[in-house]
Design a protein around this nucleic acid. Sequence first.
DNA 1: CACCGCATCCAAAGCGTTTTGGATAGCTCT
DNA 2: AGAGCTATCCAAAACGCTTTGGATGCGGTG
Lengths: 340, 340
Amino acid sequence: MNLKELSSRLGLSPTTVSRALGGYPEVNAETRARVTEAAARYNYRPNKRAQALATGKSFNIGHVLSTRNKDELVNPIFGDFIGGLTERSAASGYSLSLTLTEVDAEEAMFRKLKSEGAVDGIVLQSPRTNDNRIALMHDIGLPFVVHGRASDIEAPYAWVDVNNRRAFERATAFLIDLGHRRIGLVNGDERMDFAARRRSGYQDALRQVDLQPDETIMRAGPMTEDNGHAAVAQMLSMDNPPTGFVVSSITLAIGARRAIQEAGLVMGRDVSVVAYDDDLSYLSNRQDVPVFTAVRSSVREAGQKIADMLIRQINATSTAPDRELLEAELVVGTSTGPVV
Amino acid sequence: MNLKELSSRLGLSPTTVSRALGGYPEVNAETRARVTEAAARYNYRPNKRAQALATGKSFNIGHVLSTRNKDELVNPIFGDFIGGLTERSAASGYSLSLTLTEVDAEEAMFRKLKSEGAVDGIVLQSPRTNDNRIALMHDIGLPFVVHGRASDIEAPYAWVDVNNRRAFERATAFLIDLGHRRIGLVNGDERMDFAARRRSGYQDALRQVDLQPDETIMRAGPMTEDNGHAAVAQMLSMDNPPTGFVVSSITLAIGARRAIQEAGLVMGRDVSVVAYDDDLSYLSNRQDVPVFTAVRSSVREAGQKIADMLIRQINATSTAPDRELLEAELVVGTSTGPVV
DNA sequence: CACCGCATCCAAAGCGTTTTGGATAGCTCT
DNA sequence: AGAGCTATCCAAAACGCTTTGGATGCGGTG
């Protein structure tokens, strides 16, 4: 059932039917009722492909996953982030179009998406410090919103980010308030902008109480359980081990807990841990009393905001790019305690 | 730059240019060279929307996420699965189109995707036993491949699945061989087909050595760290606690480990755990000696196979639906040992 | 030499919408 | 009564491609 067929059955022109369904004013109320009734009866839906060609919009928002090599980690927050994105874009009739590319072919992929007209806008994730994709997107001229920010980029662009610096400042200060003076950091890859910001928040908190940040108790790397375990195990075996740790994800924290237990210590008593909690649905830290003391901000919610923002930008003629800074919430769990 | 523009610059008709780029034979080799050169120079790419309309194909494969409620878990294997899917579909020029819907609106969504011509085929995930979506897809007439199977459905359909029954039979038998006689099960939601199959594999292994399956040491529920912890903690506190556990995911196993440690026991010595390992990239169990003894099958690889299979099915005229049963591999880690 | 087959190209007709630019009729005003 | 609106509808163009159904010219054949 297509427009022509439907309109001929109704004895109307395609124009009128299209307008009736599109909600345009220049159609008689009675006719509109007839049309909508018939459309429902015949289960007519405008063909997306034709609609896309006629309107010049694809009703797709794009997200490209780029891998350095085939085995590279899928981002653990990916699922929840996509969930949030999809949730809101679906509500506006957009669907999310995923493509995958190797990192060298990333630029070509973005240009392709643009010249093919495959997407109306793009969501960028995990910016590195001074990420070149932002300039690229400006050059290409496709609406985009960044999940996170890239330091050192002056040109305005739309983003949604968590106040990572502040979150880690608070996490660290929380441990300091409990009497901890030697606090280790287990961070994500610090070429990522969020990780760099977290580190600076951590250092700021230390300096505020005249503690000298110590490079030997800072680690950065992929945020796997393994790495959390390795980093903490290694730091605990030092001569002057930390009594507290600030770690960049729940997964790392789980590894940290394992290392602490293996060292014959008790987390929350002998060693404290504060985690960054993305509020991932498959790694809940939302018990009545959370297992981990954490600074929490929902990545799913960020996805929702980003989708809304991007769609607004697509439909807007020309406004200054939106930006939104989310604050992480501190939740106190059982993984922290006063220094012994 | 579009086809008309490009062809007029070349002094050729759109037909010839289209054919030259499309690789059709009826075009002079020299002309083809000129055309491809010019296309590259002007960075011409056929507009996907127009191409879609003209060919009647969208070059999208669809995947719909349906939630029972807004807070429902995002499936933890989602990220890796999507990764595998995207990886292979991108290679064939397809992109993955995600939409989200509430479970009541699921049927309407599938019908919508069909009538709008938004996708060329669909990937179904997490079938429940006797899943009604399969009959629905047949009715709608859209190519589809299922990740997993649905018992009790006789009509042929394409699927890729792991031999879950066998995997759990082997996992259980492995513990039995180590001398364990009281073996607990921590399963996923048994309305899911895979979980039902795992349970039957577990029970079969017990019966093969004349052990009577005991309902009191079987648990089923969402596969979170929390639930793994709760289930194992509770079973360990029983009068006649299990000495070994078979659990349905690494996340559950991490929770199990926590419960074991809290009980003052040592995993791999006092209590053994065999996990099902989806080989998720953010929860690696691939150390030199894996932490968890596990039956492992890569969900990412399943995604790849599904994408290939679906694209084959889209382009095929009419063949019997493919199906592929993957076997999980048993890897021995440190979480198991002979019964004490 | 007339005819045929082949290689190479093109004009035009879709594909199913939206949108532009009227057309028509009825009504109000002056 | 004629001009000017307004409400309602429609024909046709446009979106940018693919594909059908020829055209054209050339070399080889009988």
